[in-house]
Each structure stands twice: as C-alpha cells, then as structure tokens.
Nucleic acid binder design. Structure first.
Length: 640
RNA sequence: GCUAUUGUAGCUCAAUAGGUAGAGCAGCUGAUUCGUAAUCAGCAGGUAGUCGGUUCGAAUCCGAUCAAUAGCUCCA
C-alpha cells in the first residue's frame, strides 16, 4: 500500500506502484504536463511506489511552461535532423522565455532556413507523435551515439559520473534524444512553435570552444497565446532605450568617436544631473565625504592594487611602448585612488568607519561586441563609494549600504524590478582571484549571514565575484530580458593589505580594516537607460528633463508666455515654450508630447480669465487654474 | 573577441535584372491665427558609413574597415 497526499491535504491510497499520469487520470486531473512529487518535478510517466506528496503542474506556471518548451526543443532538434543531414546535436534546454537548441551545422542559417524549419517543426506537432521514455545501459548509449557520430552527446555522456546507472532517453518517431526529462506525452500537446532567431553560441559556454548555431524559439498551447506573446514582445521593444533614448534625444552616438562612447544630449545630461545631485545629497546626509581623484595613474598604482595582473585587459593603457615615458592607464575603478585619502595619514579606530563617496568617471576597454546603448559603454560615471571599517562595524555598514541602495531603488520606482545575487568566487579557478580559500570562505559566509538577517530573496552564483572579494549584486533585466548589474555592494579583505592601509585599535595594535566597495545607484548611464525602458520615456515628474511645456495659441501671447516661463523657472520648474523663432505653433510631435508631464495652454480664453489650461500626460485635461495653483500642484506632486 | 544581420537626406522608407538617387514627416522662407501631430505655396537637404577592387558604367557585385542591432563570451 502507498499513500499519496495532495496539495489540498486530501489523501488517497493505492495498492501498488502506479504512474503519475494514472493517478491524475483517476482523480480527474486534466491538462497536467508534469507532476511535483515531494517538491521534485517529475514526468507523467514516473512510477510512484512510495508514500509521497503529489501535485499536478500546468502550463500556467513557469515550471509547467518549461516542460512544454523542453519538448518543443526536442521537436526542433528533430526538424533540424530532418532538414540538415550533417547536423550534430549539442544541447537544447528550456529557458525562462522559451527554449533554444544548439547545433553544429556546416552552413549558416538564414531567414528562409528558419521559416522552413518552423514549417517542419509545426508539421511534427501536427503528426502528434507519441513521446516515449526508455533507458539504455551506459555502454549502449555510447555505442548509440558513436554510430550517429554525435560527438557532443558523447562528451556529455563521458561526464556521467556513475557509469553503472542507466541513461534516460526520450523518443518521438525516429528521433531519440538523451534527456532526463520531464517531457509531454506527445508532440501534439506542444501547440504551436515560433522560431525567433538564430545566433552563434559557444559549445559549453566557453569562448575557446567551437561556436555552434543556436536557434531560439517559443511555443504556446494555441495561436492566440502565441500572437499575444509576440505582440507583447513588440511592445517591449518599443520601450528599448537604445531606440527611444535616441528618438527622444537623450543620447546619440557617432561612428568616428567610437564604440561605447555615447554623446549625452541636453535631456539625458539633465536627468543624469538630477540623479547625481540626488545621490550626492543623500550620501552626504548619510555621512559620506565626497572626494575627487584623478582619472588616470601610473601603472605602479595598479600593480599594487592587483589590477595590472587581474584586470589589464579591461584597461586603456597609455605609453605602453614608449620606454622613455611613464606608462599610464585610465582608471577602470576608483578604489586605489580613493584609498589614498585613507592613507594620507595614520588612522585610529576612532576614524572608522571612514565613508568616502565619489561621482567617478571610469574607463573600461570592453570587447567590441559587448557595447549596448547606454547599458554597456566604455566610459561611464559611477555613484561610487568606499567604506573602511573595523570587523565589528562590518555588519552595520553593509546593512546601511543595502538600505541606501534600496532607498534609491524605491525612489526611482525600480524596487520591484530587481533581484539580488550573492556573487561568489570560483574555487576551481583560483588564479583569477587574490587571497586564499580560507579568507574567501570566511568573508562569503559573513556576507551570507548578514543577508540572511534581511527579508531578502537572493540566489548564490559561483564565479561572479570581483577579484578581491564577494559581491551582493542587485540585478535588473532590460526590455530584451537580458540581465545586468544595477547596484553592487562588495566586501574586500585584500586591498587594505596590499595598500598597507592600517589603523590602530583600542589596544594600540595595528589592524587592517575591511573595505566595502559599493554603489548607491550604480552607473548613471545604465540607470538612465533602465529608467527610459521602465517608463517608456515618460519619466516621473521629478526626473523629467522637461516638466512643463507652454503652448501658445496666438503670437501676441508670446511675451506673456515668456513671463510665465520665468515665473515657473523661479520655482525650479523645468519649462519650455513650444515655438522657436518667437513664432506661434502648436504642432508638437505626439511621440514627444506624451512624455512631458504637464502642458499649459495659453490662449484668448485663458487670457480673459487670467488663468491657464492644464493638461496632464496621463490624466488628460485638468480644469483651468491660476498660475499659483499650478505651482502648488507641481510642488505637491514633487514632495511625495 | 566570436556568430549573424544592417548601414541611401535629421527620421521612416523607395528605386524592374549593375545605367548615374526619390517620397512622406521633420527643417527653412512666405502666407495662414486656425483650441491640442500632420493648412497652403515655395526652398533647401545625399561625394549612398569609409576606403579599395571588378566593370565602359556600382547605392546595387567583391574585399577591407568603421559603426549599429541580436545572441555568445565578458562585465557596472
């Protein structure tokens, strides 16, 4: 006898081992694509032969979608095998927004190939082939792939630790694929597949390996859902800062200036100035002292910090082949410079914590393919800061940094869009880092302890640390779903030693402080980019480079509008008049119009009543009001 | 850096098979004063990203290079 408990708490007994799908059938559960057995995702074909908890998984959950998408990726692999005789299979997982499959192909894939494959894929769905699971002995599986000359599959197999265990396969029609599942029961259940694009991707994600062809796709249960998804995708792309930011004249690029070196136009610069003032003021309130340090230094400095050995590829080096001149490098980080403030004289524990901030321009020689609008550039400005503190102060200071970061996110309205990541070192790749294992484990544990005291969900990722210490990274996704670090808070236990930064403790002993590297708002270019995407260009009032546009309907009102502008300007409201050359005109491009929070209309009607008509970009027409009333309205909105 | 795609006026896009560049919007000038993008008339804008090659002739074909886009790798 076995007892199965369901999500609603109900129980059912079965006399013998039974398949998940059979259980669901008996219970009348329909449309489940997999099961969750004691919290583990399992195939509908799984035999249950012990007491357990079980619940159905459907397409409406991400886990469920991934089952569909994984099956879709197998169908794609089958289609590619049908269409390209010499193709070899690599891997094809489901991802958060669909699936991909990597192939080794002799030829490139163009659009026609992709649509041909799409037809083939949907043909396989229509055929509604039964998908069966079977197992093979390890040796048989090796032989199976050797015959097919599938060297990537063989490589995966060779890493199978337990060669005694059977290897799991899934088969549909003639196509069999190494896979641990779970999968749907037939190809027809997938619904419809759209192949989105094809790109290159390195085998095993290693740039030293061969580049394979990757095809991305998505599938839905029906065409309506697919259409909706594709439309949403198009909508999201309209918010792309790289397009919108240029259209709205926040920034531009010039080919002969170079990659990753955007020109910030007046609007973009205004927003960055607002952000920068906001950040510096807030940091000052929180006890930071502002510094301004050089943008470049002799390589000697970087040799001490370790950048010369661990970060040289990322730096712009000057005079490297002139023996008569000092070799200099533009700074990729501010830490070694700002440390000199600490080192200016001897420090006691009474000086700590020492909190320094800087609005620092940095230069990083990113590889040519990495640049992306304002999100990834070669010169950028960071809201940077460093805190030197005693071990006892570390927790409080770290907590304060996190609080500051969250405060900033809250103010920008990005709080719900971010996720947290504890970025650790890679212990299999020690040469990338400075310091020994014990120190790393020690600090990482410390960081984890602090994080666990917060009500904060975070994931841990190996190999994402800085070379000098672990990081708390606050991540965000752009409109393309690509993840980037917005804010980072790092604990460093190495650089103080390298720079011989000491303090004298209460027992008159010399000690090294901990250093926290942190940003409060990340880099301004990137933050601006994400704000444009978040708000589709219609930034909140306090961040809008143009808060008010005055529209005059009669040339004779021009002088009056100038006075109005002056008056609003005195109240620190950013206002523009909609005409150039002192001529009337109420032709405003709609695209720009709905980005401006308020529009004031000034015409004969208003003149008579000595008032203005106000239009809000979202609320539409507001009642006409006196200028003072409008100023109050804006101030009220700004204060909350 | 790698795999692809793209590059024609400020923007969006045209031009049968290589035959010597055209339209809308924006801009400018003038008229119009018309209540929320697109009134009328006129003008001006391009050595086709750049450099080289093939050809009698190249926006179109080839090569190199620069830049942009998506993805990989890398990273704030």
């Amino acid at each position: 006898m076995l007892e199965i408990v369901f999500k609603d708490g109900s129980k059912k007994e079965f006399s013998e081992s039974i398949e998940v799908r059979e259980i669901f059938r008996k219970l009348g559960v329909k449309n489940a694509c997999a099961g969750k057995l004691d919290k583990k995702l399992v195939d509908l074909r799984t035999q249950v032969n012990f007491d357990c908890k079980l619940e159905p998984v459907y397409f409406d959950s991400l886990e469920g979608k991934k089952v569909y998408w994984h099956t879709a990726s197998h169908i794609l692999a089958q289609a590619v095998k049908n269409e390209f005789k010499y193709s070899k299979l690599a891997i094809g997982p489901a991802i958060d927004n669909g699936f991909y499959y990597d192939f080794d192909l002799k030829s490139n894939l163009n659009k026609e190939d992709l649509s041909k494959l799409e037809n083939e894929v949907n043909k396989i769905i229509k055929e509604n082939l039964k998908i069966e699971r079977f197992v093979m002995k390890y040796d048989e599986a090796v032989k199976f792939f050797e015959e097919k000359n599938e060297n990537y599959k063989l490589e995966i197999l060779s890493e199978n630790l337990n060669k005694e265990e059977h290897v799991s396969f899934y088969k549909q029609g003639e196509f069999a694929e190494l896979c641990s599942g779970p999968h749907l029961l037939s190809t027809g259940e997938v619904g419809c597949i759209k192949l989105l694009n094809s790109t290159g991707a390195y085998w095993r994600g290693n740039s030293k390996n061969k580049m394979l062809k990757r095809i991305y796709g998505i599938s839905f249960q029906n065409k309506k859902q697919l259409k909706e998804y594709l439309e949403n995708l198009e909508e999201a792309k309209k918010r792309d800062h790289n397009k919108l930011g240029r259209e709205l004249e926040f920034f531009t690029t010039v080919d002969y200036i170079g990659q990753g070196l955007p020109i910030l136009m007046p609007k973009g610069t205004k927003v960055m100035q607002i952000l920068q003032r906001f950040v510096e003021d807030e940091e000052e309130k929180r006890g930071y002292l502002l510094t301004k340090t050089p943008l470049l230094a002799k390589k000697d400095l970087y040799e001490i910090s370790g950048h010369w050995d661990h970060y040289r590829d990322g730096m712009f080096v000057i005079n490297s082949d002139d023996k008569n001149k000092d070799v200099l490098a533009l700074r990729p980080m501010t830490c070694p410079f700002q440390f000199q403030v600490y080192l200016n004289r001897s420090r006691s524990y009474r000086d700590l914590p020492m909190k320094l901030n800087e609005t620092s321009t940095l230069f990083r020689n990113e590889a040519s393919g990495e640049m992306h609008g304002l999100i990834r550039v070669r010169q950028f400005t960071l809201s940077e800061g460093h805190i030197a503190c005693t071990p006892e102060q570390l927790e409080k200071e770290f907590t304060d940094c996190l609080d500051l970061a969250n405060f900033m996110l809250e103010k920008l309205g990005l709080k719900d869009d971010v996720f947290y990541r504890l970025s650790k070192w890679d212990e299999n790749n020690k040469e990338k880092y400075i310091g020994d294992s014990e120190e790393w484990e020690n600090v990482q544990n410390k960081m984890r302890d602090i994080l666990d005291k917060f009500d904060l969900k975070y994931e841990e990722v190996d190999g994402e640390a800085a070379f000098y210490g672990p990081k708390l990274d606050i991540q965000i996704k752009n409109v393309h779903g690509k993840e980037d670090t917005l804010i980072t808070i790092q604990i460093d236990f190495q650089l103080a030693k390298r720079f011989d930064m000491q303090y004298v403790d209460i027992n008159n002993q010399r000690q090294y402080p901990y250093v926290i590297h942190r940003t409060s708002l990340g880099c301004y270019e990137r933050t601006l980019a994400l704000l444009i995407e978040k708000y589709a260009g219609a930034l909140p009032l306090w961040l809008s480079p143009e808060q008010v546009r005055i529209l005059i309907l009669n040339e004779s009102l021009y002088e009056k509008s100038k006075k109005l502008k002056l008056k609003l300007g005195e109240n620190k409201i950013r206002v523009f008049i909609d005409n150039r050359n002192e001529k009337i005109g109420y032709k405003i491009r709609q695209a720009q119009l709905d980005k401006i929070p308020y529009m004031l209309i000034l015409g004969e009607k208003e003149l008579e009543k000595n008032s203005i008509s106000v239009r809000h970009r979202e609320k539409g027409d507001l009642k006409s009001m006196k200028i003072e009333e409008f100023i109050n309205l804006i101030n009220k909105e700004l204060s909350c």
